[in-house]
Design a protein around this nucleic acid. Structure first.
Lengths: 212, 212
DNA sequence: TCTCATAATGAGGTATCTCTCATTACCTGA
DNA sequence: TCAGGTAATGAGAGATACCTCATTATGAGA
């Protein structure tokens, strides 16, 4: 019943490799043309597989969409978690997380563009993205750093600003947008413009040092 | 060549009435199921017309989408313009416009829901919605009420917050969301939380008086 | 009553998409 | 070499959508 042994030399099974080809093809196409704008046949063709092969790996299109979106948000969080989790101040985590998330989306435009489409076309992306945000905000509230009462509307607002930041950067705006989005987050959470700026600048210095 | 005379008793031509039936049907269906989620055949059926009749009034689907979205944003702006334009302070206009826009979207959910779909599925809605916003922000900047330098990213951020506010209210959040969105707008534009609150409350009193 | 421009009809051509399934290819251990 | 399980194929059934066009209906003035 269990897989007896891996075949030939492959470090990963053929099944896993084909699956990866499909998700990578889906990512490329969906980042370019959107989720609804990409058909299963196109994904299969991009992966150099026949149409029907797709359905040996995913029950339907929504399943690969979920897989791709989760993989992207996971990769983005992984890329920033070591520094982020080393910060003890909730406000610093918010400032760092926001900037870093936008920076990664801009550095890896395939990821950023997929996210933009997903915000419109795959509602569940919201939870994937806000998970880290909720934790950082809650930490800051606990520490008394934020005066704004935190509810779902605050989270929605922060997410909306994050989204606007990614969109701007993908449209060619400079890295300053990430820093501003981070300060806007802090202002929404109750800090004055000056205070938000101070916290953001201090956080950047600290994060720089943590990175080596 | 010109229309010689209106026929029968109608105050508006039959052509105009049929066109209106189509746009109203489109509004009802698209508010419910989205723009891409509504087919031309469904619109025609909802208007109690045959499939092909649609194309005697609109070149294609995108044309009726533009017409419906423009009609909705125009109606919303008309509904708040008399008070809004009577306010002389740019910051007050921002506070009033934001609250009022959200309030109208909540009071007329067909309009609000159409807007939500349009933000995802009809890019040109952005200009229709931000036109008033740009003017009010520019006025406030000119008057020295805002310290934040205003560029496209600020507008995108304000729009994103407006959108989050409408969405929350349509999901059942109370009227407080409109007030908070207005204050968030002012914070983004550089005001402290306390100052934003003060301006918003004062604006509401003033607007109340202007209304009678 | 008859004429004629305007209005409306709805079947159907073309295109695209999702998902199935009978068939074929591949590959490895015996 | 061969057997058997895994992997892959691609034609096509079934939906659904957009848009066209030859045809039919309507209704007001002559």
């Amino acid at each position: 019943m269990k897989r007896v042994k891996a075949s030939r030399s492959p470090r990963v099974s053929k099944r896993a490799r084909t699956r990866a080809r499909l998700t990578e093809a889906a990512l490329r196409l969906m980042a370019e043309s959107g989720i609804n704008g990409t058909s299963v046949s196109e994904i299969a063709a991009e992966a150099e597989l026949a149409n029907g092969t797709f359905y040996l790996y995913f029950r339907d299109k929504s399943e690969i969409v979920a897989a791709v979106c989760q993989a992207v948000t996971l990769a983005m969080h992984n890329e920033m978690n070591s520094v982020r989790l080393s910060l003890e101040d909730g406000a610093a985590r918010v400032a760092f997380g926001t900037q870093q998330f936008i920076a990664i989306a801009a550095a890896e435009p395939k990821w950023g563009r997929l996210l933009m489409w997903a915000f419109s076309e795959y509602a569940a992306i919201k939870e994937d993205v806000t998970r880290y945000m909720r934790m950082d905000v809650a930490l800051g509230v606990e520490q008394g750093r934020f005066t704004e009462p935190v509810d779902e509307f605050v989270i929605d607002t922060l997410l909306a600003i994050l989204r606007a930041g990614i969109s701007s950067r993908l449209d060619g705006a400079g890295a300053g947008v990430g820093a501003r989005a981070a300060e806007y987050h802090l202002r929404i959470l109750g800090m004055s413009a000056a205070e938000a700026h101070r916290v953001r600048v201090a956080t950047n210095k600290l994060a720089e040092r943590r990175n080596g």
